[in-house]
Amino acid sequence: MESTIKKKSLDISPSVNNVCLESRNIMKNSLIPTIAGAFALITAHAAEIGQSAPDFSVKNTKGETVALADFKDKVVVLEWVNYGCPFVKKHYESGNMPALQEKYAAKGVVWLTVNSSAEGKQGYHAPAEMAEIATKHGNKASHFLMDTDGKMGKAYDAKVTPHLYIIHKDGKLVYDGAIDSNPSARKEDVATADKWFADALDAVLAGKDVSNAKTKPYGCGVKY
């Protein structure tokens, strides 16, 4: 696995012009932290459908500690966010994400929005500022978590923003993937996409099995 990633990092192909070659070198240099992140990801216990969801204990934007153990017998949604990402904007500016947060809060679901951007990386903001930005975007989550060290994100293998997970009342992970079926950045595509995440959550709340438990999430890479 290690060697695959090392090899891949060099697989920025010799290319057809100098611009590419130059870019290739830049990319190579900038890959070092990325590779370190990838190794950390491998050693962490990865979240798997049907298994117990990895525990976490993370501070919210108010400085309070929030742990999965706090929500026994509740359905918990995890939503990775980065308000600089066009795919996140799609679902906030269209009102889709806040509407889902509101709808499912009314049904007793605990919704945790998570920001795993490391300090200094795109999308990181100090907690108070982050809370303001989230409010400005209409975020209605139960808590906004500051996973600045990325431990929670890596435990779940959160790849992109938005990336959504559903944890059943019994603590098992029952959904891991995309918000919907259309990997575009256009707001107008929200209405016509298949609602993979919402369908999964409706099934969980209705006591049914999730038929499409793992889907390919789309969005921007999490800035660990």
Binding site: D11, I12, S15, V19, L41, V222
Partner: peptide, 20 residues
């Protein structure tokens, strides 16, 4: 589309194009 180049950014492997 010509053959792409491979990238690894934010730990994600992508195929894309740079330059012109």
């Amino acid at each position: 589309f010509p053959a792409p180049v491979g990238f690894l950014t934010s730990g994600l492997a992508s195929y894309g194009h740079v330059g012109e």
